[in-house]
Amino acid sequence: VILCLIYCYLSSSISDTILKGGKSAMKFEVVTRQPEELSRQLMQQLRHGVTVLQAEGMYSETPRFLLICVVNRHQVVRFQEILARFPDTFACVSSVNETWGNFKHVA
């Protein structure tokens, strides 16, 4: 029974890797009042670009910013550590099956 469970786990994880091509990632959408500082830390520490959009809170009617950043799965914990330094932020995360594009190295 244990060997069967191990076989099932390995076969499903290997087939997922083959089908997804190893290009899966996580997309974070972060609502914040401090877009410059948060974006700078994300770009410097994670080496990923950040897209910033203006937003407005409908409940409080205050101006906010929406940051969108796609990171590798192994960087999720580091992303959460950076977000913890900004107590007024709200983040939503979703899985990305594949990433495309001409990505530049962030200095």
Rank of each mutant, 00 (worst) to 15 (best):
V1N: 11
L3Q: 06
C4T: 01
C4W: 08
I6S: 12
Y7I: 08
Y7P: 04
Y7C: 05
Y7M: 02
S11H: 13
S11K: 00
S12C: 06
S12P: 01
S15K: 05
S15C: 00
D16C: 10
I18F: 03
I18G: 03
I18E: 00
L19A: 13
K20A: 00
K20P: 00
K20T: 06
G21W: 01
G21Y: 04
G22F: 00
K23M: 12
A25Q: 03
A25N: 01
A25K: 00
M26C: 10
M26E: 06
M26S: 11
F28Y: 15
V30Y: 00
V31A: 12
V31D: 14
T32P: 12
R33S: 11
Q34D: 13
P35Y: 08
E36H: 07
L38I: 10
L38C: 13
R40L: 13
R40P: 09
Q41I: 14
Q41E: 15
L42N: 07
M43L: 09
Q44H: 07
Q44M: 14
L46I: 05
R47N: 14
R47L: 10
H48M: 09
G49A: 11
G49K: 00
G49R: 02
V50I: 03
L53Q: 05
Q54A: 06
Q54F: 02
A55V: 03
A55C: 06
E56Y: 06
E56M: 15
Y59G: 08
S60W: 01
E61G: 02
P63C: 09
P63F: 05
P63Q: 14
P63W: 09
R64T: 00
F65P: 05
F65K: 00
L66R: 12
L66I: 08
L66K: 09
I68Q: 08
I68A: 13
I68H: 04
I68L: 07
V70F: 00
V70Y: 03
V70G: 06
V70Q: 07
N72G: 10
N72I: 02
R73F: 01
R73A: 07
R73G: 04
Q75D: 15
V76Y: 07
V77D: 11
R78D: 14
Q80R: 15
E81Y: 03
L83H: 09
L83M: 07
L83K: 10
L83C: 12
R85L: 15
F86S: 02
F86H: 13
P87T: 11
P87S: 08
D88T: 15
D88N: 07
T89E: 05
F90W: 05
F90K: 11
A91Y: 07
A91V: 15
C92K: 12
S94L: 10
N97G: 15
E98N: 00
W100I: 08
W100N: 04
W100L: 12
W100A: 13
N102C: 00
N102L: 04
F103K: 10
F103G: 01
H105A: 14
H105L: 14
H105I: 04
H105G: 04
V106M: 13
V106W: 02
A107R: 11
A107Y: 01
